[in-house]
């Protein structure tokens, strides 16, 4: 009567066989196709490297001025702009400029990639309940599966380096933009949509003139979340060789360098706050029409 006290499980031999078989199949798959897949991602890697080099080779004061200018034009807020300048100067003074540029480049590229892939998926989901029902569980897996678990097959397939790192970040960071694009479009006022229909709008006209503009605040919140999650993944990605602020943190963990870990951690936080405030202020500026002022 063993099965009463202990869960009846498969014999250890079968379990070992199962995992060995799957592993073997996956290994032969990655041997057969790994190079092709790597070649497929090659343009992305080139772009990422080019962007990283650009940020690192350009004199620091030009990069600093450019970032401050972008933040100013996005937010039009003196407070946010000055805060950004101070944060960047402190990062430079404490010797984290190069690492910060690497991190910035991977965050920018992975966010762009997430938007380019996530936005159309979100739009598709909003158009069909079936698609939504099919994609939602995938997003749940992407968000809750411990990232170390999908690190394994990606490293087996592509080795360590920037591209697998980028993939890990994108997988983790993309769900919010998909979810919130879907939600935003579904929440668009039915009467406004009906009016667009009544005037004979095509699906494309409805999407570009009505649905996307009206769901923009929600989509912006999604992009904001995507950036935050990408930043949170920087340390994990450094495990598989992504340069940037994650690597000193990793080093600090293994060697118990408390100050080094703290400083680099704070640099990540500073970038996160800059991105967050600037993108939210930009989102608010796009919504000027909501400020009702009865005349």
């Amino acid at each position: 009567m063993d099965w009463l006290t202990e869960f009846p499980q498969l014999p250890g031999r079968d379990l070992r066989l199962l995992s060995r078989t799957i592993d073997q199949y996956y290994r032969s798959f990655s041997r057969a196709y790994g190079d092709d897949i790597e070649a497929f991602f090659r343009p992305l890697l080139d772009f990422l490297l080019w962007f990283e080099t650009l940020l690192q080779q350009t004199p620091w004061f030009i990069v600093l001025a450019a970032i401050v200018a972008i933040v100013w034009f996005a937010s039009r807020s003196l407070k946010i702009t000055i805060g950004t300048a101070i944060a960047l100067i402190l990062i430079g003074v404490f010797g984290m400029w190069e690492d910060t540029m690497s991190t910035l480049s991977i965050i920018v590229v992975s966010t762009l990639l997430s938007i380019v892939i996530g936005l159309p998926i979100g739009i598709l989901m909003s158009r069909s309940d079936k698609v939504q029902a099919a994609i939602n569980p995938i997003l749940d897996v992407m968000q809750t599966m411990p990232s170390f678990v999908y690190l394994i097959p990606i490293v087996m397939l592509l080795g360590i380096g920037l591209i697998p790192g980028l993939l890990v970040v994108v997988i983790y960071a993309m769900p919010p933009i998909i979810r919130l694009t879907n939600l935003g479009i579904r929440l668009v006022d039915k009467e406004v949509l009906e009016a667009a229909n009544a005037f004979g709008s095509s699906n494309w006209q409805k999407l570009t003139q009505v649905q996307l503009p009206l769901s923009l605040p929600t989509i912006m919140a999604g992009i904001n979340q995507t950036i935050m999650m990408a930043l949170a993944m920087v340390v994990v990605a450094s495990l598989i060789g992504v340069r940037g602020l994650g690597q000193p943190v990793l080093q600090a963990i293994t060697n118990q360098y408390f100050t080094q870990g703290l400083l680099n951690g704070l640099a990540i936080v500073a970038i996160a706050i800059v991105f967050d405030r600037a993108s939210q202020a930009y989102g608010r500026r796009l919504q000027r029409h909501r400020e009702a002022a009865h005349g």
Partner: peptide, 10 residues
């Protein structure tokens, strides 16, 4: 339309 159905962002 009864509740106007205007495009609020335009």
């Amino acid at each position: 339309f009864q509740r106007f159905g205007l495009l609020p962002h335009k």
